[in-house]
Design a binder for these strands. Sequence first.
DNA 1: TGGTAGAGTTTGACGCCTCAAACTTATGAG
DNA 2: CTCATAAGTTTGAGGCGTCAAACTCTACCA
Lengths: 256, 256
Amino acid sequence: MAQEALSASLEDYLEAIYMIVLEKQVARAKDIAERLRVHRSSVTNALHALKRHALVNYTPYDVVTLTSKGKVMGAEIARRHEALNDFFVKVLAVDEKLADRAACEMEHAVPREVLERFIEFVDYIETCPRAGTKWIKGFGYQCTEGRSVDDCERCVEACLDDVRKKKHTKEAEKVAVALATLSPGRKVRVTKIKGRDATSKRIRAMGITPGAVIEVERVAPLGDPVDVKVRGYHLSLRKEELQNIQVETLSPLADE
Amino acid sequence: MAQEALSASLEDYLEAIYMIVLEKQVARAKDIAERLRVHRSSVTNALHALKRHALVNYTPYDVVTLTSKGKVMGAEIARRHEALNDFFVKVLAVDEKLADRAACEMEHAVPREVLERFIEFVDYIETCPRAGTKWIKGFGYQCTEGRSVDDCERCVEACLDDVRKKKHTKEAEKVAVALATLSPGRKVRVTKIKGRDATSKRIRAMGITPGAVIEVERVAPLGDPVDVKVRGYHLSLRKEELQNIQVETLSPLADE
DNA sequence: TGGTAGAGTTTGACGCCTCAAACTTATGAG
DNA sequence: CTCATAAGTTTGAGGCGTCAAACTCTACCA
């Protein structure tokens, strides 16, 4: 009753609970039922099953929270969902609502390795200057920009300009930037993790390693903590962690 | 008992039957059971269900073939599978075997619009000069080519050269190419469908419209018929159809 | 404190898919 | 022609997930 994979249905329940707990601290059967559009009794059923897997803290008639194992697994599922959603929206230029629905349905079937590739691919596309935002938008309009060879030439020239511009400002950009000073939406690449102590180890364990792309999501008023997304995971970084992370800026998402 | 969506399981059966029929003309319960690794009795079960949906020609103890409706639906499912597989292999650089497994598991959940985007995206990436094969390979090696701004500059410059080279030979390439003379693996883009008669209408109905990318899969010894893949569908084109399709060549898949 | 509305649970039924075991049919070798 | 064998089918059971209906519990208000 532990490590076997969950059924698609139980994954849905766990994900729903994860999201509700994130928002309201505890989940109630009714919230879960509404979110998943199932009958209340199905929720009770699922809760028993999740309890058997040691994923939820639950006794009849009580509110639901996640065990530590449940939190890890819930985060994993939410990450899958979001990775697909990101890919659909940012790369395939799919409508947000449809992307969400598609992610819901597909998330249960994505093998781990393929999922990682999806995430890396989105990072790659968003940060490789050769495939700037214009290029992806081009796909959004059915390759309008690249339809004829003439268009392509102009398009690639513009790209080269971008790269050269970036090169000139390169030295300045390479300087470590304080994550806390960046505005949400900004992307940076990790260049170095300073130190060899426990903090820096913990940072590496979170997936923040040289080369990783970090997207700033939220910065608390005092610059601590900073919420970021790395390799598809959401993390909250504290001041002492921020100091150990050296980064370079990347082109922000919007290109105008 | 007709147009409702099939369950994932029934889709698997239909796809298996489609593949077996493609290869051996008829499917036998044993083949289906072996391919799907299920018990023979489960196959009987599924056959009854598929018959209820009017997808298979089947009477107990007899071999199985597909109704015309079954063929259409089977092709649809096979197309979904292959589109995902293509994407995983060609874009995400996933190992072939894993790609196939992932496609198997995910194919039931892909909404139509998202599927079309996957297919268009693969076409786009394979034909837009800005995103040549090198670029995708770059992703395969974890963006090795685009890691530093210097590398990127060289990379984009090479891309520009390609585009310019293509421009010089543009007029020559624009000339209509006989599909029958192309070797398998070649890709072309449709520039025009000649005529307004029944044949040209049928061609358009198959998804062969200006702008569409055609990949040549097989050419019969006498140049007729030619098997191609268009927008994810496999088609077999006859001589009279070939004559109406005007195309321009695109860079072949391999770039060395 | 008692009662009630709303939240949560239990129960039983059903559909879908699977399997194993017992049965039936088709086939072709002798 | 017949009969053994392999292929196919039927049946019954079990897992899983869903629902509706009837039930129980909780919390809050008068």
